[in-house]
């Protein structure tokens, strides 16, 4: 085709790329931690919480899981200001990530909680543990351990989905790629570089989550 690949632009745009990588890492770090906390709260509500609170949480989970992330992002960024909730693009992107991961992790964690044998609750109660204590030590930790692989996969999926936040000008890695290719018109090379970086990020993230699993659940082997 006579088209020559040219990567000579990389040094010139390195700061832009690094900035984008930094934002993507920030988004996934904050999104994963806050999203999982939200997921735990929602999972508790759906499985063991007050009955009146269950339908709204179920509606939230179903709504998020059945619409594309991009539409959710647009609603938060363009829709919420009309209700007086103003936030910048990075806050909107972060919130969208949290809300999205919260719904998915809720379902994953709930499955883990529901797999808890009934005797465990009774055992917890017989040790004079409070409900919260029972939940934390007897239900949640083993549940998280059970579903850790599924949760890890979901976090990686959400990280890759974060490519969409560039649509509201949040300056993540995809934004950097789009910014660069709008300047140098070298779209293939730019997207190849971005794809390789994403692959590296997801492999690193997976390693980090596996390592975290070993730290959080040291009795993993003994439990099995």
């Amino acid at each position: 085709m006579g088209y020559q690949l040219n990567f000579g632009w990389i040094p010139q745009y390195m700061p832009v790329l690094l900035h984008g990588i930094g934002i993507t890492i920030y988004l996934i770090a904050v999104g994963a931690v806050a999203g999982c906390i939200l997921g735990i709260v929602c999972a508790w509500t759906r499985a063991l919480g007050p009955v009146w609170a269950r339908p709204p949480v179920a509606a939230y989970v179903e709504l998020i899981r059945n619409t594309p992330f991009m539409v959710q992002l647009f609603f938060i960024f363009f829709g919420l200001p009309s209700l007086g909730v103003q936030m910048n693009e990075l806050q909107a992107a972060t919130l969208a990530m949290i809300v999205n991961l919260g719904a998915y992790s809720c379902e994953i964690i709930r499955a883990g909680i529901q797999a808890t044998p009934k005797g465990q609750f009774e055992a917890g109660a017989s040790l004079a543990m409070s409900r919260i204590q029972t939940f934390r030590h007897v239900v949640l930790i083993p549940a998280l351990q059970r579903i850790w692989p599924a949760l890890s996969s979901q976090i990686v999926i959400v990280m890759l989905g974060s490519a969409v936040v560039s649509q509201v000008a949040a300056e993540d890695l995809t934004y950097a790629a789009n910014f660069i290719q709008s300047r140098n018109f070298r779209a293939f090379e730019t997207y190849i570089v971005a794809t390789v970086v994403y692959l590296g990020l997801s492999i690193l993230l997976r390693f980090a989550l596996d390592a975290l699993g070993w730290v959080l659940f040291p009795r993993r082997k003994a439990a099995r």
């Binding site: 960024f77 363009f78 829709g79 910048n88 560039s166 509201v168 000008a169």
Partner: peptide, 18 residues
């Protein structure tokens, strides 16, 4: 500078006060 994907993004950001 806030750079939006397309004109729609720019217009929506302006109209919504972003």
């Amino acid at each position: 500078m806030r750079r939006y994907e397309d004109n729609n993004g720019t217009i929506s950001a302006f109209l919504s006060g972003q």
